[in-house]
Nucleic acid binder design. Structure first.
Length: 580
DNA sequence: GTTCCCCGCGCG
DNA sequence: AAAGCGCGCGGGGAAC
């Protein structure tokens, strides 16, 4: 009698008559288990397989399946998100034979974020029974199995399969993390938020009326302009009023206004700050987005072409620094905030293997390292130069510093310069782990060809060149921003597994208002490109900090094995997030 | 009345 | 300060 092969994968999908099916596959794709159950029994079924076999769960779309499991208290270690991975494999230059994948158009969802999923009471099955979500992919078992099989075939045939497999794992981990972040939420101090608003704007006004300090500041502006009726919230009208008062600005943006000495400028800038705070993160935002001491934004993994996350609703990726003190740990808990110093430049140094650039960042602030190497005089110059290198800056201070970087960091600059040149030609570029930039539209190529014909008019040529340079700046940045996103996902994926091994604290020490899943031990609470915040019981704070640091080191070694590159963190343990 | 685009500004 | 990359959002106002 042969041993029953152990399940490597568990595929979930809808079966007949509204039932759910689970099919277990061994490492070679052979079926080694098959169960069917009513939707109500799904969490218990999944929990049992997770406990007994810890397989990689195959989801048509983790964003549709996992929240339901989390609500029932079930967390999973690993998954494969077919929707997200389809998008990567379909476009990746490392997949030579993608015809079968490309033919499966039902899996080709737009980059647009999901509709915000605000009502967690609705289940996957309710949603699909009524109106399918925008960007929904098939969720029936047979089609889910078929797509899984196509993706495994594509991965087998890939060049650099090891890298692509890392990307697949990291992207899928991101799908789990995004759902967990939304379930856990960010601990948010409503009273502190209200204090910040009141200090800046005056007490909360009745609905429909502006707060008192905005009214008085608006009056100051109007007095200074000598016009009692200027509508300050309408840029075109405000612009005309500014012109009438002799303030000759091309737009009403703050940096234009700052060039002028007029007495209306200072109160107007103050007014704009207040208006921004009120409309973006005022009391209305608080009412809508913070409930029971938690802010629960909708994260959209893979929502940006480069692989960065986007967000949908609530502006999770734009929380102003001014409001950071409103992030506050529950009583007896701590926030551990960590951000990577100069992530993108370090990623570029590692990708290119540029020894001088790696050395400049070794164990310290990379920009200061560039100063100490005698390449530029000030840290500010170093920063502007490096950002210019990453973004394709050609003018001003950045344009003056970039040539010096090109001289001192030839390998690093060659990497981004090559990416830009490829983009200008209409070509595709690829991140370190294998995410490729979208192909140009046929109309773009046609316009470029037309502009190169002898009969092309000057305006046409200029427009085509400008468009080519724009695309070059995009592809230049794509390779670095995209690889940085891969590093950040690997960091979080490693951290998430470390935190999952933490002991649960006693009920009495649990964070009160959060759901049971994330109220008993350290958990991720926030993510923003190169920054994480972990919410942890006070006695786990040091260990969580250690896990964050170890995970950063692990991510560096995973992506760049053997490279001397390091990724130092700014890390802080506190009850309240600092404004910085 | 609704939809769409632009502006301006917050974040990395 | 912005510039040079990537985003989301609210508001106004034009387009429909």
């Amino acid at each position: 009698m042969t041993a029953r092969p152990s399940p490597a994968w568990c595929v979930l999908g809808r079966g007949e008559g509204g039932r759910i099916r689970l099919v277990a596959l061994d490492a070679d794709g052979g079926r080694c288990g098959d169960e069917e159950i009513d939707p109500d029994g799904l969490p218990a079924l999944v929990a049992r397989w997770e406990r007994e076999h810890s397989p990689r769960w195959v989801f048509s779309d983790a964003a549709a399946w996992y929240p339901r499991l989390l609500t029932a208290g079930v967390t999973l270690e690993r998954c494969h998100d077919l929707r997200l991975i389809h998008r990567i494999l379909r476009h990746s230059e490392l997949v030579p034979e993608a015809d079968a994948l490309r033919a499966a158009t039902a899996w080709d969802t737009p980059l647009d974020p999901h509709e915000p999923i605000r009502d967690t009471g609705a289940t996957l099955f309710d949603l699909e029974a009524t109106s399918p979500r925008r960007g929904a992919v098939p969720s029936d078992l047979e089609e889910t199995l078929a797509e899984h099989s196509r993706q495994r075939a594509a991965l087998r045939q890939a060049e650099e399969p090891a890298r692509l497999r890392l990307l697949v794992a990291a992207e899928s981990a991101g799908a789990l993390i995004a759902a967990e972040l939304q379930t856990a939420g960010i601990p948010w101090d409503v009273a502190e938020h209200d204090r910040i608003l009141t200090a800046a704007l005056g007490p909360r006004p009745s609905p429909g009326t502006p707060p008192s300090r905005m009214v008085s500041t608006g009056a100051e502006v109007r007095t200074a302009l000598g016009d009692p009726l200027v509508p300050l919230d309408s840029p075109p009208k405000l612009l005309r009023a500014l012109h009438r008062a002799g303030i000759d600005v091309p737009s009403t943006s703050q940096w234009e206004l700052q060039q002028h000495e007029h007495p209306a400028v200072e109160p107007l800038l103050r007014y704009k700050k207040m208006s921004r705070l009120l409309t973006a993160n005022g009391w209305t935002w608080l009412d809508e987005w913070v409930h029971e001491g938690r802010y629960r934004p909708v994260y959209v993994p893979g929502g940006v072409v480069t692989g960065r996350w986007a967000s949908s609703g609530g502006g999770a990726l734009q929380i102003p620094r001014q409001l950071r003190p409103a992030l506050r740990a529950d009583p007896g808990w701590r926030l551990i905030s960590a951000d990577v110093s100069q992530l993108e430049p370090r990623v570029l140094a590692a990708m290119s293997g540029d020894p001088a650039m790696i050395a400049a960042g070794a164990g310290k602030d990379l920009y200061s390292g560039i100063v100490e190497a005698g390449i530029v005089r000030t840290r500010q110059e170093a920063k502007i130069g490096v950002l210019g290198a990453l973004y394709g800056g050609t003018t001003g201070d950045s344009g003056r510093v970039v040539p010096r970087l090109r001289q001192n960091f030839p390998a690093a600059m060659a990497l981004v310069d090559d990416a830009a040149a490829t983009g200008e030609r209409g070509g595709t570029v690829t991140t370190w782990l294998g995410r490729s930039s979208p192909a140009v539209e046929e109309s773009w190529s046609q316009a470029q060809r037309a502009a190169n014909q002898p009969d092309a008019v000057a305006g046409q040529q200029e427009a085509a060149r400008r468009s080519a340079r724009e695309r070059g700046r995009f592809t230049r940045n794509f390779v670095v921003q995209g690889t940085a996103a891969e590093w950040a996902l690997s960091w979080m994926a490693a951290l998430r597994l470390r935190l999952a091994r933490f002991e649960e604290v006693p009920e009495s020490a649990a964070a009160a208002p959060s759901g049971p899943v994330f109220s008993r031990r350290a958990h991720l609470a926030f993510f923003l490109h190169d920054e994480v915040i972990v919410h942890a019981p006070a006695e786990q704070a040091e260990a969580a900090a250690e896990a964050i640091t170890q995970s950063a080191d692990a991510a560096g070694r995973l992506l760049f094995p053997g490279s001397p590159i390091d990724f130092p963190l700014d890390l802080e343990i506190s009850e309240r997030s600092a404004e910085k």
